[in-house]
Write a protein that binds this DNA or RNA. Structure first.
Lengths: 149, 149
DNA sequence: TTAAGTGCAAAAGCTTTGCGGGTAG
DNA sequence: CTACCCGCAAAGCTTTTGCACTTAA
């Protein structure tokens, strides 16, 4: 993410914390900054590893807990994918995904027509929809080559 | 899933196994049948529990392994969702999802406009897209009530 | 007969919880 | 001062692996 966008997100983080009376700790700030710097829809463990380069000895627990907090505050989201690990997405605005159904890779894409999709009425299901996302599912290059080889 | 559709899928299962020289075992057949009977996008463990009512003492390992096999054969798929557990989807044809970002519930929906989406060229990413799916992300009724309460 | 599947036990990987001590506001 | 956060250790899930035995074809 570019520097300006990162800066804006950090400011958003500070004002939300002030609003809610949540302490701003070094750990939280660095975990957010680090997550914003990674574009692979990383797992909590991958984020922990990256954060540890700046805060030696930071605990996994703190990273797991903080990521959940950041999601709750709306500063990051969870990525939808077929695998069995939670993965985080630094993008909170409307966007879409290429998803590899073999290795679970997730790649961001943009598409105006996807953005403009009309959202049907879902009140019959009791759902309140806040967001939509198109997933193009298939195989990434690496997995396709393994398949053929 | 209705009986006719289930029957068709089981026949498909048999012919694919014959084609590839894979043995048709009782376990595999019952695991497939059971998965086709569940509409909650169940986890492997939930499927194991349901299968165990018909095959007492069936091992978790077998269920985990067989589900992966069935996915590879194209008889079921994995559901994309934000949580940290693998979940299976009995539907293999084009369809879409409501996803609760709090509790991870996944509900099937149909929408012709979603079906008809034009798929952009993704060759630049090396992906081969075989399928697409729209996810309407939000909160389910239960989670919304908890939120407010 | 033979390639493949099954079950068990154990290991590995991911995530949460309880609690004592520390820190931002 | 007080509420909330952090780190540790331990527990709890979920999933995979190696191996000996069994079974479909």
């Amino acid at each position: 993410m570019d520097e300006a966008a990162t800066q804006r997100r950090l400011e958003q983080f500070e004002s939300i914390c002030h609003e809610r009376g949540l302490p701003i700790t070094v750990q939280r700030r660095v975990i957010l900054e680090t997550t914003l710097s990674l574009d692979n829809h990383p797992t909590a463990d991958q984020i922990h590893e990256a954060v540890a380069e700046r805060i030696a000895g930071i605990s996994r627990t703190t990273v797991y807990r903080t990521l959940e907090t950041l999601v709750r505050l709306g500063l990051i989201t969870k990525a939808c994918h077929p695998g069995g690990v939670t993965r985080y997405d630094r993008r909170i605005e409307l966007h879409h995904h290429l998803v590899c159904m073999r290795c679970d890779a997730v790649v961001d894409i943009s598409d105006d027509r996807f953005d403009a999709l009309p959202i049907p009425d879902t009140s019959a299901y009791g759902f309140e929809v806040s967001d939509h996302q198109v997933q193009l599912r298939g195989l990434c290059k690496t997995c396709r080559e393994k398949e053929e080889g």
